[in-house]
Design a protein around this nucleic acid. Structure first.
Lengths: 190, 190
DNA sequence: TATGTCATGTAAGTAGTTACATGATTGG
DNA sequence: CCAATCATGTAACTACTTACATGACATA
C-alpha cells in the first residue's frame, strides 16, 4: 500500500475505498503497525505540515520493506482456516421455528444481493472511465480488477445458493416428515 | 454443538470432522470457553470416568444456554468484514515477476480444486448412506447439508475464477503494454 | 521402551476492536 | 458556535494461536 508514500490516515482511506472488500483495518491498528514497521526498518517517515490538526507523518517503503512484500508473495498461497459467521448460523438453524428460519435466509439473500449491487456499481465506474473495460487496463489496475471480478462471481453464487436454500426449505416445510433410511445422522461423519 | 452432552475433547473432534469447513477452534480455546459458559450458567458439567487419562468432564446445555443460541439466530444475519488472505496477495501481485505471478495463481487454482475434491468426497459419503440424497435427509442433517452445498458451489466458482485469471494473465503477458485512455488509475476509486 | 491416543489444562503472545484523548481548521 | 474533517495517538478488552505441562493407558 506504500508503493507511493502516504500517511496512516491516507492508508485508512485506501482501506475504505477498495481494500475493505477483502481486508480492513482501523486507525488504532494502523498507527502502531506503521511504528513497528519503521522500527524494523521496513519503512521510513518524514513529517509534513498539514492544513489542519497535527503534522502528517508520511511513510515510505524501504528496500527491505519491498523485499518483505516480495517474500510474502513468492512464499506461495496463504489459505487460512476460514471463519464464516453466517455458515455457523445456518448449520444450527434447526434450533429456531420454521418461519424464523425462512426470515433468516431471506435476510441473508438480501444482504448478498446488496453486496452484489455495490460491486456492480464499482464496475460501472470503471467502465465509464474506459469503455473497453475489462480490457486495456493500466498495470496498476489489472490485479485489483481480478479481485473485483471474484467479488462479483462470489456474491452472485451466494445469491443463487440462498435462493436454492429458500426453495428447498419451503418445499420441506410443506410436506412434513418423510421416512429416512438407516437412522444415524451424517453430521458426525461430515 | 451441545445439543447432546459432550466433553471439550469431543467438541474438538466435531470441529475437525465437519465444522472446520467454516469454523475452527483449538482445545486451548475450547476449555476456557466451556469454563466461562458454565460460570455464566449456559452449561452444566458432570465428571465421568475415562478409559485413559484424567476423568472426562461432560457438559450439557441449560435452558439459558439454549435461549442464547435462539437469540443469536433470531437476532439476524452476522456478516462480519471479511479478511481474505489470498485476495490481499492477488491485489498486490504486480510486485513480483510475471512467471512468479503465474506460478502463484496456478497454486491457488490447485488449492481450490483440492478443496473441491474434499467436499465432493464428503458428499459421496452421504450419498452412499442414502441414494436419495440430497432429498429425504433427517432433520439433523438438513441445515448442515446446506452449508456443504455452499462449499461446493463456492470452490467451483473459485476454480473457475482462477482459470479465468490464468488465461487473461497469459494473454496479457504475450502482447505487451497497450495504450490506455485517461491516465490515472482506478485503484484509488475502487 | 517408545510412540500414539485420551484427556485435562495454563501461559505467553499476536491480531483486531471499541472506546477514549487531543487539538486545529473549515463550513454552515 | 457547532459539527465535520484532518490528524495524531493510547488503553482496555476479546479472540485466537502456539507452545508448554501433566499423566494414564495401549500397542508395536
Amino acid at each position: 500500500m506504500l508503493s507511493e508514500p502516504a500517511s496512516g490516515y491516507d492508508l485508512k482511506k485506501a482501506f475504505e475505498q477498495s481494500i475493505r472488500h477483502f481486508w480492513s483495518a482501523e486507525l488504532s491498528q494502523i498507527y502502531p503497525a506503521l511504528a513497528r514497521l519503521e522500527k524494523d526498518g521496513r519503512l521510513e517517515s518524514t513529517a509534513a505540515p498539514s492544513g489542519k490538526g497535527p503534522p502528517r507523518k508520511i511513510y515510505s517503503r524501504t528496500e527491505s520493506g519491498l523485499d518483505e512484500l516480495v517474500r510474502w508473495l513468492e512464499g506461495g498461497v496463504e489459505l487460512k482456516q476460514e471463519r464464516v459467521d453466517f455458515l455457523s448460523q445456518v448449520f444450527f438453524l434447526e434450533a429456531i421455528p420454521s418461519d424464523a428460519r425462512l426470515k433468516y435466509m431471506q435476510g441473508l439473500r438480501d444482504a448478498f444481493a446488496a453486496r452484489c449491487d455495490v460491486l456492480l456499481n464499482i464496475e460501472d465506474g470503471w467502465r465509464s472511465q474506459d469503455p473497453r473495460y475489462p480490457d486495456h487496463l493500466p498495470d496498476a489496475d489489472f490485479y485489483p480488477q481480478l479481485t473485483l471480478r471474484l467479488g462479483l462471481m462470489k456474491f452472485r453464487t451466494l445469491v443463487e445458493w440462498a435462493d436454492d436454500c429458500l426453495s428447498v426449505m419451503r418445499a420441506r416445510s410443506e410436506r412434513p416428515p418423510t421416512a429416512t433410511l438407516g437412522g444415524r445422522s451424517n453430521v458426525e461423519a461430515f
